[in-house]
């Protein structure tokens, strides 16, 4: 609790938290918040600039950009968030079991993960779409199938690192049960790793989802999605660059907020970083960058 308190003193963290929560709320309550119908076409308002009725102007079909942005939160953020929660959940469970208990179970689970990881992600996703048909939910399903093993691997590695620590050995000599040891000693030290990997996976998934939408495999045309809005605006990139700005800035802003928040969370949770001020916070950011790099590879 004390540590959460220090998190709330960090202005950047607070701002990020505000951006994240307001985005989520806006997505959930989109029908009440959006000023207009996101799919209503007004050909006479094509490329109209901002007005009081359409605060961010209109796109190439005269639809309200702001409303499309708000409705776009649903697939772009909420959908990906749900996928993330599920795959991180599965990955965490498997990672903890494999990393803590080791032995045969670990070997078995990790071979399964290896098999899952050896499928090329994009081809698998295309395969799933080919079997189940085009649609957002099928892409999200493919994401879950592809990502859990990746999380399981990373979490297992960091659990293993701590499962042999001397304080875990000491707790074992006290006769404390495995579940309690995991909860008290291993979960807290792995939370930063989980948070950082999830936040970088989150941004990459948002971008991938946009990519599939661009190929016409994800969100279907009239519905709004950030990546698709970008692609629609791309066609008029030189004549109407401002149309790129709205979805682009929103995506960047949200993804950065997620990054900043997980960094701040990491700093706040770690007593070593927390007490000695903010200059070490850079380290957290550096690690984030590292992890992202390893994910791309």
């Amino acid at each position: 609790m004390k540590r959460i308190g220090s998190l709330l003193q960090d202005r950047l963290a607070l701002l990020s938290l505000f951006i994240i929560t307001s985005t989520l709320l806006a997505g959930i309550f989109a029908p009440w918040i959006a000023p207009n119908d996101p799919e209503e076409v007004h050909m006479e308002l094509r490329f109209a600039s901002a007005s009081w009725e359409y605060l961010l102007g209109n796109d190439h079909l005269g639809r309200c950009v702001l409303s499309r942005l708000i409705y776009g939160i649903r697939p772009s953020v909420l959908g990906v968030l749900a996928v993330l929660a599920i795959s991180v959940g599965i990955g965490t469970a498997i990672g903890f079991i494999a990393g803590y208990f080791k032995g045969k179970l670990d070997a078995l689970l990790m071979r399964i993960c290896d098999i899952m990881l050896s499928f090329p992600g994009y081809v698998m996703t295309l395969g799933i779409i080919g079997i189940l048909g085009v649609g957002l939910q099928h892409i999200l399903l493919a994401f879950v199938l592809m990502k859990w093993s990746w999380f399981a691997r990373i979490i297992r590695t960091s659990v293993m690192q701590y499962a042999d620590a001397e304080y875990v050995k000491f707790s074992k000599t006290l006769g404390i049960g495995s579940l309690r040891i995991i909860w008290k000693h291993i979960v807290p030290v792995t939370v930063p790793v989980i948070a950082v990997t999830s936040s970088s996976a989150f941004s990459s998934m948002v971008l991938q989802l946009s990519g599939y939408s661009f190929l016409g495999l994800g969100v279907q045309a009239p519905h709004a999605e950030w990546g698709m809005m970008l692609n629609e605006a791309r066609e008029v990139m030189f004549s109407r660059p401002e149309l790129l700005l709205a979805p682009g800035i929103t995506t960047i802003l949200f993804v950065s907020a997620v990054h900043f928040f997980t960094d701040a969370l990491q700093v706040a949770l770690d007593p070593k970083l927390g007490s000695s001020g903010r200059k070490k916070q850079r380290k957290g950011r550096f690690q984030t960058a590292n992890l992202q790099g390893s994910e791309v590879a």
Partner: peptide, 22 residues
């Protein structure tokens, strides 16, 4: 399950990891 007295307690070598950093 030998919690409580009658057991052996321990002190380990590596003091950097013998107390949970949190």
């Amino acid at each position: 399950n030998r919690a409580g007295s009658g057991s052996i307690s321990a002190v380990f070598q590596d003091y950097t990891s013998s107390i949970n950093p949190y």
